[in-house]
Design a protein around this nucleic acid. Structure first.
Length: 458
RNA sequence: GGCGUCGUACCCAAGUGGUCCAAGGGAGCAGUUUGCAAAACUGUCAUUCAUCGGUUCGAAUCCGAUCGACGCCUCCA
């Protein structure tokens, strides 16, 4: 089956045609580890997770690399603020990042290279760019990429550099550059960098931000690979600069498909650390939302449209997740051994193959679930139909990962449940209802079914 | 100022020329079921797709204008 994705470079949907048949190489821009990532960051990581899961499900091998930015202005600033070693800061936030990724059931990358482990390679690429005439050294020992030396500069972001407004930030930032829009490859050491520096042919300093991705993506995936992802805010300048560096230094096609996810907004504004309107994964879990609810909320709109994050959305997500799990359990009790799938499954895969249309795929799944529920309530569902349904949900879950692990009911709750069951048998309805309220106060919901009770966390 | 995305029911959200007098989820309302609930099921819930014009046999979908929201233009997922 054909898979197509929207390519930012051409602004069109394009058929995926892997460079190496049967295998897709993906580079995704990872976190800058100076702070806990927020749910907005994870929208992108979950979009990339869906991308990868779809490719795996249809049979591709996936080679996925995600960088960890552990050296830049922000990491240094944070280390200074907290009076700690850079490494202490970056390893703390790296492990928190991995923890949150696991919580959200995001499949791990094959490799997580860190920028500080690739300083020599970055120096080498910078040297190449100077030799080729694409970069120049300034008096203070910094190195800049000359955007005029690269013909296609601005192609990804569709920017005509000569017509760009110069913001105050740009104007005040650098004064030694030939062209105010040139970007830095190597930053010379400054007092506030403290003991953080590496030796280079141009003196003490550290790499510029964009360089690490050019170096590490091509090192681990080859000069030319299939897909490069990130959030839309990476289109310019980050990815534009990556293209300039990589293509100029390596004379390569670099990336076939650029994919970017839209922002997650909080009350109509982009969620970002600098605006201070962020929510982290532990905060949301603490508010009572499961990882599955968070995943659902993030995939319930297509990755290229803006997503407004809200409590309302999480509440909707919680119920939708419950619905899927509920049917799954019912089918699980009725199924037999078989790997048959309903015809809806093809439509499901088609939707995902069309630029990861997760809302449409969810719609197909829910339509099917309703069909199954209807038959169950009429007692008309055959074992083979139940099995088909179960298989469909299982396959769908390879993409969505919304099935909840069997919950462990704490002893304090199960004691109350036993008391309530006893009261119910004796038809002491007042007592059983008050026990149900008590259990609810403790955060658990009791549902009575024909085959006994079900107990779920709220 | 330049570039770009978007506006679909009470909320979220697919659909981008006919199969749509517009999927799906949530909320609401009415009913079935239940000791009561919950869950589940049934019915109901947009003659209409920001507005106004145009193209077309046919438009939510294409074109133009207007209004509104948001993003990027060297911190950013």
């Amino acid at each position: 089956m054909d898979i197509q994705f929207y390519n930012t470079l051409t602004r069109k949907k394009e058929k995926l045609n892997p460079i190496k048949p049967g295998e897709v190489s993906i580079y995704t821009c990872g976190p800058t580890v100076y702070n806990r990532s927020h749910i907005g960051n994870f929208r992108t990581f979950i979009f990339e997770d869906i991308l990868k899961r779809v490719l795996l499900l249809v049979g591709y091998k996936v080679n996925h690399v995600m960088n960890i930015t552990d050296i830049d202005d922000k990491t240094i600033k944070k280390a200074n603020e907290e009076n700690k070693k850079l490494k202490e800061i970056t390893s703390k936030y790296t492990s928190e990042f991995i923890e949150d990724m696991n919580t959200l059931k995001i499949l791990p990358a094959n490799k997580y290279p860190a920028a500080t482990d690739h300083i020599q390679e970055m120096i080498a690429m910078t040297t190449t760019l100077i030799e080729k005439g694409n970069a120049y050294v300034t008096d203070d020992g910094s190195v800049y990429f000359s955007i005029n030396s690269f013909e296609n500069y601005g192609k990804l972001a569709k920017l005509d550099m000569s017509s760009q407004k110069q913001t105050d930030r740009v104007a005040s930032d650098e004064y030694t550059k030939d062209n105010i829009q040139d970007f830095v490859l190597w930053k010379s050491w400054k007092k506030e960098d403290g003991d953080i520096s590496w030796n280079s042919p141009w003196g003490k300093g550290r790499p510029g931000w964009h360089l690490e991705c050019s170096v590490m993506s091509t090192q681990y995936l080859s000069d030319h690979f299939d897909i490069h992802c990130g959030g839309v805010d990476n289109i310019f300048p980050h990815h534009e600069n990556e293209i300039a560096q990589s293509c100029a230094a390596l004379e390569t096609d670099f990336v076939n498909i650029w994919m970017h996810s839209e922002h997650l907004n909080m009350a109509d504004e982009k969620m970002s650390k600098s605006l201070g309107n962020i929510k982290t994964i532990p905060e949301l879990l603490n508010d009572g939302y499961s990882p599955e609810s968070l995943r659902y909320a993030l995939i319930s709109s297509q990755y290229r449209s803006k997503l407004s994050f809200s409590i309302n959305k999480l509440e909707d997500a919680k119920k939708a997740v419950h619905r899927i799990n509920d049917v799954f359990e019912k089918l699980n009790e009725r199924s037999i051994e078989s790997d048959s799938l309903p015809e809806e499954y093809n439509k499901f895969i088609e939707s995902l193959s069309d630029d990861l249309n997760t809302p449409k795929a969810l719609g197909i799944l829910f339509n099917y679930l309703r069909k199954v529920n209807r038959k169950i309530s009429k007692n008309e569902l055959s074992k083979s139909e139940a099995t088909m349904g179960l298989n469909f949900i299982k396959q769908a879950d390879k993409i969505f990962a919304l099935l909840v692990d069997k919950v462990i009911i704490p002893e304090s709750i199960s004691k109350l449940i036993v008391l309530r069951e006893k009261a119910r048998k004796e038809k002491q309805w007042e007592l059983s209802d008050s026990l149900r309220d008590k259990i609810k106060e403790k955060g658990w919901i009791i549902e009575d079914t024909h085959d006994g009770y079900k107990c779920l966390p709220i």
